[in-house]
Design a binder for these strands. Structure first.
Length: 743
RNA sequence: GGGCGCGUAGCUCAGUGGGAGAGCGUCCGCCUCACACGCGGAAGGUCGCUGGUUCGAAACCAGCCGCGCCCACCA
């Protein structure tokens, strides 16, 4: 060590992350460590595909934890000598991004419809150009060693090709189809959404009882409903086939009040005898259950509520044009006037809302594109059942399988502008539908020569996400990256997207590439606010990871997040981040002690100086070190990050600093020349292995200290990961020292 | 309605058949020549409740109470 560096080390009594991280990170990038050559096979290489954050996003604590986990794994495997690629990219995030830009436009007093589709999409690309890189920069502050040079976006040209290939392939197999079907209509985003984007909330409504007179009789059938306005679209009344109260009425008709339509009285198992009066009004056009029942009985499907949330002409002149809420008031008033309203009572029940816009879902029948999932699910169930894909913690396997076994069709079309426009063209002249990867030549219909019109809809964002790990590597092209890094090894994510994303990646990969996309799925903790509520910006419960990096350092945050993570949800604890900061500082100062006093001794491993003749405390610390190396390695392999982190902490604080350094100080202190060379050598050896062991978790401080090591050969990021040497486990020395110091 | 998870020291959490632990906080003493982001020491728990299995239970089983999450077409 030259005098200048020595003086700097001597003077720096406190580790300063702010002065280190930027410089160290730049050196890693310049060293090319993040971007591997696409060589070798996926079996010998190691890869992880990042869950691509939304371009609109900014780093939150969940990203912090998940990306720390991935970086820890990636760094460990890189040090183990594997060719490692952490696939990085962002997601175009259909509705979220479109909303952000729409809001921006609105602030300028512009409606997107004035702008037109093309100009609007152009505007979104501009937005993405300006702000889309933010979250990626934030990842880098964490120390993420991903392949940023190969960054992908789920709307890149190549990615579009992948999406089209999959859509067409599934269409040709009959799995993707267009149908008039009941969908979850989100009046907020003015689009259909999938079942998974719906969340049920408890709502207090009014339950209305309405009398439907039975035809040619003085009896009435009383039905109950929370949405009386939908009665305008009723096409039947159903009772349970075993319900004796109504047995004689089945096959007859009743008269729909206000409208006068004859409604068949049908029998259907779905009707609960216990609920209400046991008679159920059937509205196939506006209720998912009634839709099923209606299809089963071949009932008419009438729609009285349109996509704009207002009553249509079908509803009749009295109601047409009203909002659903206004129509409800009007219908109730009219029923009351007609004497048909028997009762109204408060009623709490769960109601579907759009996860995205927060608006109440309007179930209605709409012409949309769907993907049949049952056939895709079968092999995806098998690979999890037979262990080719493992979930950690294991219990999520059951959750995955239960959902897959009851999977339903997926509505994939969205009435938005930002996203993958469907590769579908229609000929209005002859009615042909063309589904193709590229626009047909001349945009003309092959059979009649008519002009083709492209479907305006875009795909659900999750449709493109489902291809992420392989499309990001260049599929459907046969790229070197794909050959070298696919299938990937681990997928690390939160449990809330097991269905939305994980399951669909497995299904599409098996279908299109006949391979599993990854062999391990690690489901990490959800980090809650310190008070146990959700961490969320709108609740004001969010804590900004970047502020913690500013105040305590990236290593501190990484350590803290890993240490607090668990197999279940955890409350955020800044104390754990401080513990990480303290550990970084401890490592720094222990290293100062060693490096400033060990002179230029060779680490013991290099000189072979560690033998049974060495002092018992030396054998003791070596034994403790090797056991810790083994433990940390094993815990990381089992995705048990908190124990890995805490074991590292324990070793550094307790074994190394509290005991060994204190014991060995006298041997060290007479200066490097007069001091005990074996102690110096031993210390350097222990330090070297400790830094390497700690690096995947705390890359910055360990790399910085590594730069001061006397025999420094290369950067720590590329140094060998320590493999435990059981030959140095020394029960005797441990027993002796334990007895002596009362550990 | 079904399922999953949780309830251990003031706080946040480990521990899952045989010693009740960590970090933070609290109290006492220390700026001791690596580190006050530090060092030494101390106090603090009927391990949600009840019953069972066992020589032995915080841990296994059953029931109950409380909290959280997911799924579900009772209008």
């Amino acid at each position: 060590m030259d005098a200048e560096r020595r003086a700097k080390l001597e003077a720096t009594t406190r580790y300063d992350p702010g002065g280190v991280e930027g410089r160290v990170y730049a050196a890693w990038r310049a060293g090319g460590w993040f971007t591997p050559e696409p060589e070798g096979t996926a079996a010998e290489n190691y890869s992880i595909a990042i869950p691509p954050p939304n371009v609109t996003g900014s780093l939150h604590m969940g990203h912090g934890l998940n990306n720390t986990i991935q970086d820890t794994l990636v760094r460990k495997h890189r040090m183990m000598g594997e060719r490692v690629k952490w696939i990085i990219g962002t997601d175009h995030a259909g509705i979220a991004t479109q909303s952000v830009v729409e809001k921006e436009l609105r602030a300028e007093g512009i409606d997107r419809h004035e702008l037109g589709r093309e100009a609007f999409v152009e505007r979104v690309w501009e937005w993405r150009e300006r702000y889309g890189g933010r979250i990626v920069e934030q990842l880098q502050r964490l120390g993420a060693s991903g392949d940023f040079a190969g960054e992908r976006f789920t709307l890149d040209d190549g990615y579009v090709a992948a999406v089209h290939r999959v859509f067409v392939a599934l269409y040709e197999k009959g799995l993707v189809y267009r149908d008039n079907y009941m969908v979850n209509w989100d009046p907020g985003s003015h689009s259909a959404i999938s079942d998974l984007e719906v969340e049920n909330r408890e709502v207090e409504d009014t339950l209305y009882s309405i009398d439907y007179p039975v035809e040619a009789s003085d009896r009435v059938l009383t039905v109950v409903t929370v949405r009386p306005e939908t009665m305008l679209a009723d096409t039947a009344v159903a009772v349970n086939p075993g319900d004796e109260r109504y047995a004689d009425l089945v096959g007859g008709h009743c008269i729909l009040p206000l409208v006068g339509r004859r409604l068949p009285i049908i029998a259907d198992e779905h009707v609960d005898v216990e609920f209400g009066t046991g008679a159920l009004k059937i509205t196939p056009g506006h209720d998912p259950n009634d839709f099923e029942i209606g299809r089963g009985h071949g009932l008419d499907e009438i729609s009285v509520i349109g996509e704009d949330g207002r009553l249509t002409d079908e509803a009749g002149p009295d109601y047409s044009g009203l909002t659903a809420a206004a129509a409800q008031e009007r219908v109730v008033a009219d029923l009351r006037a007609a004497g048909a309203l028997r009762a109204e009572e408060p009623y709490v029940h769960s109601v579907p809302f759009s996860h995205r816009s927060g608006e109440r879902i309007e179930p209605l029948i709409s012409l949309q594109w769907f993907c049949r999932m049952d056939e895709l699910a079968k092999p995806a169930i098998d690979v999890v059942r037979d262990g080719r894909i493992r979930f950690t913690p294991e219990r999520w396997e059951r959750v995955y399988l239960d959902w897959m076994e009851a999977i339903r069709p997926w509505c994939v079309s969205r009435q938005l502008w930002w996203g993958h426009q469907l590769p579908v063209w229609y000929c209005d002249r002859c009615g042909t539908t063309i589904v193709a990867e590229r626009e047909p030549e001349g945009a003309e219909c092959e059979s009649c020569g008519g002009a083709l019109r492209r479907d305006e809809d875009v795909l659900d964002t999750w449709f493109s996400s489902a291809l992420w790990p392989y499309a990001a590597l260049g599929w459907p092209e046969d790229t070197p990256e794909l050959r070298a890094f696919y299938p990937t090894d681990v997928l690390s994510t939160a449990r809330d997207i097991i269905y939305l994303w994980v399951a669909r990646m497995i299904m599409t990969s098996l279908e299109l590439l006949d391979e599993i996309p990854f062999s391990d799925v690690y489901i990490h903790s959800v980090i809650q606010a310190p008070d146990g509520r959700r961490m969320s910006k709108s609740l004001g419960t969010g804590i900004d990871p970047l502020e913690l990096i500013d105040s305590h350092g990236a290593d501190a945050l990484r350590f803290g997040l890993l240490a607090m993570s668990s197999s279940q949800d955890v409350r955020f604890s800044e104390a754990k981040v401080q513990q990480g900061r303290d550990l970084a500082n401890k490592l720094w100062n222990a290293s100062r002690l060693i490096l400033l006093n060990a002179g230029d001794a060779e680490p013991a491993a290099a000189t072979g100086a560690v033998a049974s003749s060495t002092p018992v405390e030396d054998r003791w610390i070596l034994s403790r070190l090797e056991r810790t190396v083994e433990l940390v390695d094993e815990r990381l392999d089992r995705f048990d990050f908190s124990h890995a982190a805490l074991e590292l902490y324990r070793f550094v604080y307790s074994d190394l600093c509290d005991w060994y350094l204190e014991i060995v100080k006298p041997r060290l202190y007479d200066g490097p020349d007069q001091g005990d060379a074996s102690a110096a050598a031993n210390l350097l050896h222990v330090l070297e292995r400790t830094l390497a062991m700690a690096h995947p978790l705390m890359p910055f401080v360990t790399e910085e200290i590594w730069g001061y090591m006397p025999d420094r050969r290369s950067e720590l990021i590329g140094a060998p990961y320590p493999i435990a040497e059981p030959a140095r486990f020394d029960d005797e020395a441990e027993a002796e020292v334990t007895a002596a110091i009362g550990l």
